[in-house]
Design a binder for these strands. Structure first.
Length: 724
DNA sequence: CTAAATTCCTTTTTT
DNA sequence: AGGAATTTAG
């Protein structure tokens, strides 16, 4: 018997047991919202005898989904495999594969991530003469994404909207070609997964009824970070029966860059009937000292529901701000503090270092490695974006979906097998002219004009190898298939032969990948009582992220971005790089909305800490190959002394004397450093503010005593005053 | 066709 | 700085 009384407070219990109304839970950080979801699911299954397959729970990450399922099973003491629990993308993908006959896609369509998207765009630019400068890939992809999140395909964009603008007209044309190419390749991007699901539910009455009927009870976590497409999917499913429960916190909305809109949480009471709104403000995670800081930081945001977190866990240790001369010192000091904590008996897995950008992880990795402190990076381009892994996955995608040109082109000459650019171009031309796919073209290369016999031989050898595998892929367990491909291509031994440590790491990655396929196969076999084949495996891999890989019981310090920290908690939290242009990030400080979102990101970081919170900033930091002087984050000003200790450092007063950043000495006479004095023929004495490059060629920003601030090349400067 | 040389380009955050 | 992409040389 589950005890719903002692484990939950009054309001949590209401969330769990009110099945009569649509429920909106406004849950502060650490207020036990995941607990509510788990107990509500348990309540439905155990008390109300709702079959698990009628319950849909949407989480923010795959890992959260797995955890939720495990905890629920522990609570119920029975397995609930048929429960629908996953991210929007994984749930939608499941539906789309199953219902592909209603779409212009086959069930085995590929998923394109950023790399493939860009590669598709580049080909379109080349074919249709679009200028990369005028249409930067990231901008275009961002815009396409924003349209898709609003459920708009190119044909839905109002002509009138872009008639006056050549740029917009160009963009719409690119968007159009892009969608066509994806369709031709039988591929979807991440946003398509949501868009097509939403459209299907909107337009197909039968399907809508079917899934409304399946998903009798719906729960959504992190509702504040849903976008319009996601809203529409849930709305279509829940509009009839209204049995929906959403959980979120407007102060933790940090995904507007991918179309998330607070509108969904703010208008929930209008979207559904007789909504019960329940607020959870008691925090069960952090000490009062930490919450005081969190409350004060977030109170500077204007656009929010005012709420104050409180807890009964005692005052605790006051958060501390540390200032370091440069980013290296920051990383080293944090590493040695962690060493001390470890010696005092802290568990490493209870410690995390949070930062704004992935690039910052590098410094911490080095510092921790030097001190031999185990660490794991959560997320980032650790694994699935590695070249060797992507190559291997491209083989698998091609075997499963021969229409997928991106994958085929990636591997057609990888490892090198004498099929060069010219051959590929000719094959592509031939395919285009005869309206067949590239894969079909390579099956019969002798039909292509201009191909030399030697080239034909190499192509058909490749094609035969692929054909054999794609036959095998239908029946052979995927674990065996992958092993065979890796061995036959000699990938591991190829990388092992090299002396480059990077290549050795690549070999190791491939071994790890093979191991992960085996792991998947075992789990799959347990659940389904048969060994998975390729088509069982690929859908899983497409949405797998590195976030899902770090095991909880591993004894290591966790490194991650602030975004990845959402939903997690740690005894000790370091938040590094509290500098303007980093947090808030330079790309996100133009509007008040952007700055408020960055502040929420900071808030999310703070509220991860259970007992100990250390903030830090560096007074200088390198970007690319340039050292820059930094300014403390604007989020630090306006905080009172009683919520943050700051090592006798006055943030309001500009620093006149600070320790010079340490750099490796170079045997060059004119090695310029930040803060260094330099002399110029005309402007006399000045101080270096930033350096880009070295020696004579360095481009420097120098503040001269005569008041001029100039960008200047090193060769015009002297490092000593001119003798009289 | 491959390998070397050169240029380009990056850094916001993620499913 | 460092890696990817593109151009050039063999």
């Amino acid at each position: 018997m589950i005890d719903y009384l002692t484990g939950l407070n009054d309001r949590q219990r209401e969330v769990v047991t009110d099945l009569e109304h649509p429920i909106l839970v406004l849950a502060g950080a650490g207020s036990g919202k995941t607990r509510c979801i788990i107990y509500r699911a348990a309540y439905l299954i155990k008390e109300k005898r709702i079959p698990p397959w009628q319950i849909l729970i949407v989480t923010f990450t795959n890992k959260a989904a797995r955890e939720l399922q495990t905890r629920l099973e522990q609570l119920l003491n029975i397995p609930v495999r048929s429960l629908w629990v996953g991210t929007f993308h994984s749930i939608c993908l499941r539906i789309l594969r199953y219902e592909s006959s209603f779409l212009p896609y086959k069930a085995n369509f590929s998923i394109y991530a950023a790399d493939e998207q860009k590669s598709v765009l580049k080909k379109i630019y080349k074919a249709h003469g679009f200028d990369l400068q005028k249409y930067p890939l990231n901008k275009v992809l961002g815009r396409i994404g924003r349209y898709k999140n609003r459920l708009m395909l190119p044909e839905d964009i109002d002509k009138a909207e872009f008639e006056g603008s050549a740029f917009l007209a160009g963009f719409v044309s690119i968007y159009h070609h892009y969608q066509q190419t994806l369709l031709l390749n039988q591929a979807m991007d991440f946003d398509d997964i949501l868009l097509y699901t939403a459209r299907l539910l909107q337009e197909n009455e039968e399907l809508r009824a079917k899934y409304q009927n399946i998903f009798q009870y719906i729960m959504i976590d992190e509702y504040q970070d849903t976008n319009k497409a996601q809203f529409e999917i849930i709305h279509q499913l829940a509009l009839q029966h209204q049995r929906v429960c959403v959980v979120g916190d407007d102060d933790q909305a940090i995904y507007s860059f991918r179309g998330a809109t607070l509108r969904n949480i703010l208008e929930f009471e209008r979207d559904y009937k007789e909504v019960r709104a329940i607020r959870l403000e008691q925090n069960y995670r952090s000490t009062t000292a930490i919450l005081d800081l969190a409350n004060q930081v977030i109170s500077h945001n204007k656009n929010r529901h005012v709420k104050e977190l409180w807890s009964e866990l005692g005052v605790g240790i006051k958060p501390l701000l540390k200032i370091y001369p440069d980013a290296n010192a920051e990383a080293e000091q944090i590493a040695s503090e962690i060493q001390t904590l470890q010696e005092e008996g802290c568990e490493l897995r209870d410690i995390t270092i949070l930062y704004r950008t992935n690039a910052q992880s590098r410094l911490f990795e080095n510092a921790l490695m030097q001190k031999k402190i185990p660490y794991s990076i959560v997320g980032s381009l650790q694994f699935y974006q590695r070249k060797e892994i992507k190559d291997l996955i491209a083989y698998l995608s091609t075997l499963s979906n021969p229409a997928d040109n991106e994958s085929l082109l990636r591997i057609i000459n990888e490892p090198p097998r004498g099929i060069g650019q010219i051959t590929v171009t000719r094959l592509l031309g031939f395919a285009l002219k005869t309206h067949i796919s590239l894969y079909q073209a390579i099956l019969n290369p002798s039909a292509a004009p201009d191909l030399k016999p030697a080239a034909i031989k190499r192509v058909s050898d490749f094609a035969q190898m692929m054909q054999a595998w794609s036959q095998a892929a239908l029946t052979q367990p995927v674990a065996d298939l992958v092993k065979e491909i890796v061995e036959e291509l000699g990938m591991i031994s190829f990388y092992n032969k090299s002396n480059d440590p990077k290549d050795i790491a690549r070999a190791e990655n491939l071994i790890e990948f093979v191991a992960s396929v085996n792991e998947f196969a075992e789990r799959f076999a347990q659940d389904n009582e048969k060994a998975p084949v390729l088509n069982d495996f690929l859908p899983f891999i497409a949405l797998q992220t590195d976030l899902d890989m770090v095991s909880d019981d591993l004894q290591s310090v966790r490194l991650m971005t602030l975004h990845n920290a959402k939903g997690l908690e740690f005894e000790t939290v370091y938040i590094a790089g509290l500098e303007n242009e980093l947090l808030p990030h330079r790309m996100s400080m133009d509007t008040r909305e952007e700055i408020e979102e960055e502040r929420r990101l900071f808030y999310v970081g703070i509220t991860r800490a259970k007992r100990r919170l250390i903030l830090s900033l560096a007074l200088s930091r390198r970007l690319y190959d340039t050292y820059n002087i930094t300014k403390p984050s604007m989020f630090l000003s306006g905080l009172s002394d009683d919520v943050l200790d700051s090592e006798d450092f006055d943030l309001k007063r500009p620093r006149s004397t600070y320790q010079k950043p340490r750099h490796k000495a170079r045997d060059s006479q004119k090695f310029f450093r930040i803060g260094q004095r330099v002399w110029h023929d005309e402007h006399q004495e000045g101080v270096v503010l930033s350096v880009n490059g070295t020696d004579q060629d360095a481009v420097l920003v120098v503040s001269f005593k005569n008041g001029k601030l100039l960008k200047i090349v090193g060769s015009y400067l002297k490092t000593e005053p001119a003798s009289l």
